[in-house]
Amino acid sequence: MRIDASKVDRIVDAYGCHRDSLISILQDVQAECSYLPEDALKRVAKRLKLPLIQVYGVATFFKAFSLQPRGEHMVRVCLGTACHVRGAPAVLDEVRRQLDVEPGETTEDSRFTLETVNCLGACALGPLVVVDSEYQGQITPGKVKRVLKQYMNDGRGK
């Protein structure tokens, strides 16, 4: 996906073209095109009069930012302690098998990106899988297919 400079400019201007807002700007750019394209980072650096490496450094520091194109849906499998003891590894294996990707990768049809997280703060719901921003609690390997199917069939977004 390409992002044109005017879109980036609009986001930068919304924050008053201020360096302190770098993280917020990057978040908005990522919301716009699901990841941080090289061109967009260069544009942000130019507009904020920052060296590109500084913008790049921030973008690589935070796990929330991705420099690789991501799928339409984010699938986050929690592997925190509570989820782990309730069988999260088996759930992860099933998700991996269903989507045919490893954690951190995107499916070939760019519908799903699989990620593992270490805790989502909803341990009572564990084992937990979060698709986009919907929490799917008490997941078992058997339920994985049904959950993912909702997102496979609905065309674009939810």
Partner: peptide, 26 residues
């Protein structure tokens, strides 16, 4: 007064590199 190189990543992945591996304009 250039800023061509910097730290990227965090923890064990922390490195000193140029942005995107290209020689920077600066």
């Amino acid at each position: 007064r250039s800023g061509g190189i910097g730290f990227t990543g965090r923890g064990t992945a922390r490195r000193v590199t140029t942005a995107f591996g290209h020689t920077p304009e600066e």
